[in-house]
Amino acid sequence: MQNSHSGVNQLGGVFVNGRPLPDSTRQKIVELAHSGARPCDISRILQVSNGCVSKILGRYYETGSIRPRAIGGSKPRVATPEVVSKIAQYKRECPSIFAWEIRDRLLSEGVCTNDNIPSVSSINRVLRNLASEKQQMGADGMYDKLRMLNGQTGSWGTRPGWYPGTSVPGQPTQDGCQQQEGGGENTNSISSNGEDSDEAQMRLQLKRKLQRNRTSFTQEQIEALEKEFERTHYPDVFARERLAAKIDLPEARIQVWFSNRRAKWRREEKLRNQRRQASNTPSHIPISSSFSTSVYQPIPQPTTPVSSFTSGSMLGRTDTALTNTYSALPPMPSFTMANNLPMQPPVPSQTSSYSCMLPTSPSVNGRSYDTYTPPHMQTHMNSQPMGTSGTTSTGLISPGVSVPVQVPGSEPDMSQYWPRLQ
């Protein structure tokens, strides 16, 4: 039975679970980093996980050691009161100082060594604690504590007292930064006198190289990059290397530039699409467009005044059976039934097929058609009795279509119309 579990990581490298990497692998990681390889490249070359490479390099940059820390136990506290007071002093002298600059000053002034120097995250935590204590304490208590930490007896009751030896409130920041720059020169002199001055200088240079600022491109470089971006948004590694040799930039910087440029292009394309949609959409909808001609068919113009009344309900007709019959029939052209047409008796099958359309009241044959006459024609229609054979009435077949029909004066039988409509 094995005491430890061995495995293979996602890159194909072998590791022992819970145990640190061998010293030979750690040394190779540092050597590759000094030669300029990126952590992701080191991870692929040595088949070590990216997190492990970053952790080893980060500890090497901070402490200069590649040895693993002790497994188990607690780390001794490195942010001692003396170190905290120095950090507060540096922050007062130059409020814009960075944590890694404070760390360098602690090393250069001999406050800490490589073994007990606090990390950048520890210094940031100390600065946050100082800021929170400043908010919790009152103004007087804060000034007393700062005077105690600074070891001075001057008056701290006013704002300019934060910067000793100065009279203009805006000047101390520059003086403090100048003092810090002077301390940086002392850093070089002190570290050069040490035993491991060369190694420390190499480590600091490598650290500065990794902690780079934003790349500033010249106009020629920007023009070359934009020209390549117009050709393709995704250049391959050969195109990037050719462009890197042409404009004297690292291939990694060119790759990052193209990634950022593609993101910018997507944002601009989104804005262009929004403007295009806004320009195509009308600002207001016309009133006429809300009524579609496919839904509402136009009603033909009436030929006679009587045809303006298109349904039985508008003429005072309360018989719903006839109203439904007229509205359900398709529109037909106007025609006239003459008196000489043969009077065919209704076929029983045809009569039964339209039995649902006729009223059940037996008085329908005896009703006159003056009910369908509009009010303004009552006088004219009353002067001509319906009993004469020459009287013409208008029957409504569908809305908007008038059918003048000659009705025999002897017997106005409704059943004569249905064979004609089939």
Rank of each mutant, 00 (worst) to 15 (best):
Q2R: 14
Q2S: 12
Q2A: 11
Q2P: 12
Q2W: 10
N3C: 09
N3R: 14
S4H: 10
H5Y: 09
H5W: 08
S6G: 09
G7K: 15
V8M: 10
Q10P: 03
Q10F: 04
L11Q: 07
L11A: 06
L11D: 02
L11R: 06
L11Y: 13
L11W: 06
G12T: 02
G13Y: 00
G13H: 04
G13A: 01
G13E: 02
V14T: 13
V14K: 15
V14A: 10
V14R: 15
V14W: 08
V14D: 05
V14H: 15
V14M: 10
F15K: 03
V16L: 14
V16P: 02
G18T: 01
G18K: 02
G18A: 02
R19K: 13
P20H: 01
L21D: 00
P22M: 05
D23S: 06
D23T: 09
S24E: 11
S24N: 11
T25K: 14
T25C: 06
Q27Y: 13
Q27V: 12
K28D: 06
K28P: 02
K28V: 05
V30S: 02
V30N: 02
V30Q: 05
V30D: 01
E31T: 08
L32N: 02
A33C: 06
A33L: 06
H34M: 12
H34V: 09
S35N: 10
S35F: 11
S35W: 12
G36T: 03
G36L: 03
A37C: 13
A37M: 13
P39R: 10
P39M: 07
C40S: 11
C40Y: 05
C40F: 03
C40A: 09
D41G: 04
I42R: 01
I42V: 06
I42H: 03
S43F: 01
S43R: 01
S43M: 01
S43N: 01
S43H: 02
S43Y: 01
R44D: 05
R44K: 09
I45N: 08
L46P: 01
L46K: 02
L46E: 01
L46G: 03
Q47V: 03
Q47N: 00
V48K: 00
N50I: 07
N50Q: 12
N50D: 03
N50R: 12
G51S: 15
G51M: 00
C52V: 07
C52T: 10
C52Q: 01
V53S: 03
V53A: 01
S54G: 06
I56R: 00
L57S: 05
L57T: 05
L57P: 00
G58P: 05
R59Q: 05
Y60G: 03
E62G: 07
E62M: 10
E62K: 14
T63D: 02
T63C: 05
G64F: 00
G64C: 00
G64D: 05
S65W: 02
S65L: 05
R67D: 07
P68E: 00
P68K: 02
P68V: 03
R69Y: 07
R69A: 07
R69T: 04
R69F: 07
I71L: 07
I71D: 01
I71P: 15
I71S: 15
G73W: 01
G73F: 00
G73M: 03
S74R: 14
S74D: 01
K75P: 02
K75A: 05
K75Q: 05
K75T: 04
K75R: 10
P76C: 09
R77L: 03
R77V: 04
V78F: 03
A79T: 15
E82W: 12
E82S: 09
E82A: 12
V83A: 07
V83P: 02
S85Q: 14
S85V: 08
S85N: 12
I87N: 01
I87R: 01
I87W: 02
I87T: 07
A88R: 10
Y90D: 03
Y90E: 08
Y90F: 14
K91T: 04
K91E: 08
R92C: 13
R92G: 10
E93F: 07
E93L: 10
E93N: 13
E93S: 08
C94I: 08
C94W: 09
C94E: 12
P95T: 09
P95G: 07
P95I: 10
S96Q: 09
I97R: 15
I97T: 09
F98Q: 04
A99V: 03
W100R: 15
W100P: 07
E101D: 06
E101N: 09
R105L: 12
R105W: 08
R105A: 09
L106E: 04
L106I: 07
L107T: 13
S108G: 14
E109D: 11
G110R: 13
G110E: 11
G110I: 12
G110T: 15
V111D: 10
C112P: 05
C112M: 02
T113Q: 14
N114L: 10
N114T: 13
N116M: 11
N116G: 08
I117P: 08
I117A: 15
P118Y: 01
P118Q: 00
S119G: 01
S119V: 02
V120Q: 06
V120L: 07
V120F: 03
S122F: 00
I123V: 15
N124M: 06
N124D: 04
N124I: 00
R125K: 04
R125S: 05
V126H: 04
V126R: 04
V126G: 04
V126Q: 06
V126D: 03
L127F: 06
N129F: 04
L130M: 08
A131L: 11
A131F: 11
S132R: 14
S132M: 09
S132Y: 10
K134F: 10
K134N: 08
K134V: 11
Q135P: 09
Q135L: 11
Q135W: 09
Q136A: 10
M137G: 11
M137I: 11
G138C: 08
G138F: 13
A139W: 12
G141H: 11
G141M: 14
G141W: 10
M142V: 11
M142S: 11
D144C: 09
K145R: 11
K145T: 12
L146A: 14
L146F: 11
M148I: 09
M148W: 09
L149P: 15
L149W: 07
N150L: 10
N150Q: 14
N150A: 14
